[in-house]
Design a protein around this nucleic acid. Structure first.
Length: 803
DNA sequence: GAGTTTGAAACT
DNA sequence: CAGTTTCAAACTC
């Protein structure tokens, strides 16, 4: 896959185009393969190398051009572009797309990137090469500068999205408040900018198509909703997306009520996603969603005329996505997972800073949190009132796992199991903004929610509401949750096992402040299901947690990085091995098993669903996923349960991209419904291999996948922030192909299982800090992009994959 | 449910 | 860096 891919890239796109699947996909959505490619690229921004390749491929370029051309043409007629204005618009539109991708990589950057994006978009029409540049540039911009002047306007998009995330009617007021509270004018400026942009957008009806197309892309990325959902959602969501900015702008200044309505509508969209993802999700939401849908339909009709978009729904949903915004529902989970870990602590720290500093970022972050919280409340009980309390909550700093990030996720989480969900969210404003991580913060707030939900998925709604309320009232809610006896927790975990990857810890001596603690290692706060004793891994002890984290990180910067790294590309070093070993992913440091033969979960490699690599020091390795010696598991050696997954993965890897793409599309569509893919991609990776039996991999493993978006996968089972691998796994087994496909994409990023091997198992090197995203430059990045960005669109993936 | 095994994490 | 201890999950009964 690796080396050949690029070469293949050169292969005529026609191949794919010709494929029935490709045609089918095209027919399904307005989105053109080009876009998907584009998007993916953007997402993959992380991987620079890959991008170029993409660009190089005629296929991609052509698509892009077509896409951009359309936009421009559309936009142009409708609106005479004033450079600045148009730029903003473009940014918003493209920015959205970009955002999704970026979000993964660097949510924060998105804002800044907007300008670039805009330029890119324009340039793209002229020359795709520029796009490549653009993509490349993104990473550069990654470092978020709150102060960056350029960013302010464009960034608004992202921020707006985030704020829009507040979209929930209840949230709106909060958002406004937050905006008001924001010490920095910048945020206001952003909001205003967004508003302006949104207005501009409104002004241009023509833009809709372009927007829609963009939105479609976004949608795709965001949620791989089932085809049905996808169609419907896309239509709805797209509009909302485009509207999104405008609505936000307008709404803020104008009426909350109106906004609320719109927001609801938007929410509906998001909720739909949730539904798709987790049917079991909160009943309340379901009802609400229905209502929302109805309203939405009405609203859409009315709005369509107005031209005002209400993307808030997406925003809302995306909140978790938060920043990632629309992008990638499917992906969000994965990305989250990945980032989550890396970011979590950092974010937390950042967050603190923000809080302390009261910097703009912080404000924004806080807003997110609040918004999120509000959303959650709404979701659960729809009680905004608690916000104030939450704000006061000390623990805010911790971010929930990325998983929970999106509002959807929240819902899901609630439904599924929050247990895993709570990550220590990063407080950083940037973080919040950035990625799903941002959403995580909210999670933190949601902690109460999470725990409740975690335990009782089914009952979640009522309980959740109460919990939420309680939480709002009591800062320490998390502790309360812990009440459960450890055994119970374990049981839960076990039971949840499938759905919740999130296992909860049972620490007795570590106070949950060491890596021994799965929760802590995963960057998540301990919750109810945890049976830990003397736990300090709670929002209440945020400071302690952060300090400890820093300490640990100082010792080992990668301590919180995902243990299993899956790269689409084979790691250069391990190239040979990669070939040998079937598993695409590798354990960061490699295992050291001596008695388990790497056939039990004692083995982190096995647990992670990855094969052992050269880096492993294991003795008598029989890892079903891939032996240290290089014997591939692929077909032959597999353990019954695991084997299948692996085989699938392998197959997937080897399978023609087309298939994968197709599947991906399906999955996406389905995925929207099923978080699975994302999750899988993210955490699930590891878990996947495990049979349904296999418990969800530990957080650490999950991390990679999870961080990224892992979560998505969880939808299937339970959305918990951390992982709901079990379901995931099941799905995987069932749908092996689809998953694999997704995973590949994901893998490219992180997923352990299929990904081509990337990281060397051996040493820690693995995940760079960015880590999650795309550890290795070059191809990986490319793939990652694909996966993350939009797994969905085949076209994208296929071309690359063929490469 | 209790106890054992295992290997990572932490410590020296 | 290597060896030892600590720890909690995974596993067994």
């Amino acid at each position: 896959m690796d080396t050949p891919e690029r070469n293949q890239i050169g292969t005529p796109i026609s191949k794919f185009e010709d494929s029935p699947v490709f045609n089918y996909i095209n027919s399904l959505s307005p989105i053109k393969p080009v876009k998907s490619l584009h998007v993916t690229q953007t997402f993959s921004s992380l991987s620079f190398a890959s991008l170029p390749s993409v660009f190089t491929s005629p296929h991609v370029s052509s698509h892009r051009e077509s896409r951009f051309l359309r936009r421009h043409s559309d936009s142009d007629p409708s609106k005479p572009e004033s450079s600045s204005v148009n730029g903003n618009k473009d940014c918003t539109n493209e920015g959205v797309v970009m955002d999704a991708a970026q979000l993964y990589n660097n949510p924060v950057e998105l804002n800044e990137n907007c300008d670039q994006v805009i330029s890119v978009g324009e340039t793209s029409v002229e020359a795709h090469n520029e796009h490549s540049k653009f993509v490349i540039e993104l990473p550069r911009t990654l470092k978020y500068d709150c102060g960056s002047p350029d960013c302010d306007p464009t960034p608004c998009v992202i921020e707006a999205d985030c704020t829009s995330g507040l979209a929930d009617p209840s949230i709106v007021p909060y958002v406004q408040e937050a905006s008001e509270k924001l010490s920095d004018d910048e945020e206001h400026a952003h909001l205003q900018g967004m508003c302006q942009i949104g207005q501009k957008k409104e002004g241009t009806v023509c833009d809709w198509e372009s927007l829609i197309s963009d939105a479609a892309d976004l949608l795709i990325f965001n949620s791989p909703c089932g085809t049905d959902v996808f169609k419907g959602l896309i239509e709805n969501s797209l509009e909302p997306v485009t509207r999104f900015c405008t609505s936000l702008v307008e709404q803020f200044p104008e009426n909350n009520i109106n906004d609320a309505n719109e927001m609801q509508i938007v929410d509906i969209v998001s909720t739909e996603h949730y539904r798709t993802e987790d049917p079991s999700s909160q009943p309340l939401e379901a009802d609400q969603l229905k209502e929302m849908e109805n309203q939405q339909n009405k609203f859409a009709n009315t709005n369509s005329n107005k031209g005002v978009a209400i993307c808030p729904s997406e925003i809302k949903d995306n909140e978790v996505k938060a920043c990632t915004a629309f992008a990638c529902k499917s992906d969000f989970n994965l990305y989250r997972g990945i980032r989550r870990r890396c970011l979590d602590f950092e974010m937390a720290g950042a967050r603190r800073k923000n809080i302390d500093d009261g910097s703009n970022c912080s404000s924004s972050v806080s807003q997110f949190d609040e918004k999120i919280t509000t959303n959650d409340k709404q979701l659960v009980s729809i009680k905004p009132s608690s916000d104030s309390s939450r704000r006061s909550l000390p623990g805010i700093g911790l971010h929930l796992n990325a998983l929970a990030t999106t509002s959807k996720d929240y819902k899901i989480i609630k439904n599924e199991n929050l247990s895993s969900g709570r990550q220590l969210s990063l407080p950083n404003s940037s973080a919040s903004i950035h990625s799903p991580m941002a959403s995580q913060e909210p999670l933190h707030n949601h902690k109460s929610l999470i725990p409740a939900s975690s335990e009782r998925d089914t009952d979640a709604t009522d309980n959740e509401v109460q919990l939420l309320e309680d939480a709002s009232q009591e800062p320490t809610f998390s502790e309360e949750y812990n009440q459960n006896s450890p055994k119970k927790k374990r049981r839960r975990l076990e039971n949840a096992g499938e759905g919740e990857s999130c296992k909860r810890c049972n620490c007795k001596k570590s106070k949950c402040l060491k890596l021994y603690c799965e929760c802590f290692a995963a960057g998540v706060y301990c919750i109810e299901p945890c049976s830990c004793q003397d736990c300090f891994n709670k929002p209440i002890h945020e400071d302690t947690v952060l300090a400890t984290r820093k300490q640990i990180e100082s010792r080992n910067p990668l301590a919180f990085a995902p243990k299993v790294i899956r790269s689409s590309e084979p790691v250069p070093e391990f190239g040979d091995e990669s070939n040998k070993t079937p598993a695409s992913a590798r354990h960061k440091r490699g295992c050291n098993c001596k008695k388990s033969s790497c056939l039990k979960k004692y083995c982190e490699c096995y647990q992670g669903g990855v094969g052992c690599s050269i880096g492993c020091r294991c003795e008598g390795c029989k890892n079903a996923f891939g032996r240290k010696d290089g014997s591939a598991i692929i077909g032959t050696e597999v353990e019954p349960e695991e084997d299948e997954p692996e085989a699938n993965e392998k197959n997937l890897v080897e399978r023609p991209l087309q298939k994968i793409e197709i599947q991906n599309n399906e999955e996406q569509t389905a995925v929207s419904a099923h978080p699975i893919t994302p999750l899988q991609a993210s955490r699930p990776l590891i878990p996947l291999p495990f049979s349904s039996k296999s418990k969800p991999p530990r957080s650490s493993f999950l991390t990679i996948a999870s961080s990224s978006g892992l979560y998505t996968g969880q939808k299937l089972g339970k959305p918990n922030i951390l992982r709901t691998q079990p379901k995931f796994e099941k799905q995987i087994q069932i749908v092996t192909n689809p998953e694999d496909e997704m995973p590949e994409i994901l893998r490219g990023d992180c997923s352990p299982s299929t990904g081509i091997k990337t990281s060397s198992p051996n040493s820690k090197r693995i995940s760079p800090p960015h880590c999650n995203m795309g550890p290795s430059p070059g191809r990986r990045s490319g793939r990652k992009l694909i996966l993350q960005s939009i797994p969905s669109f085949p076209s994208l993936s296929t071309p690359q994959s063929h490469r």
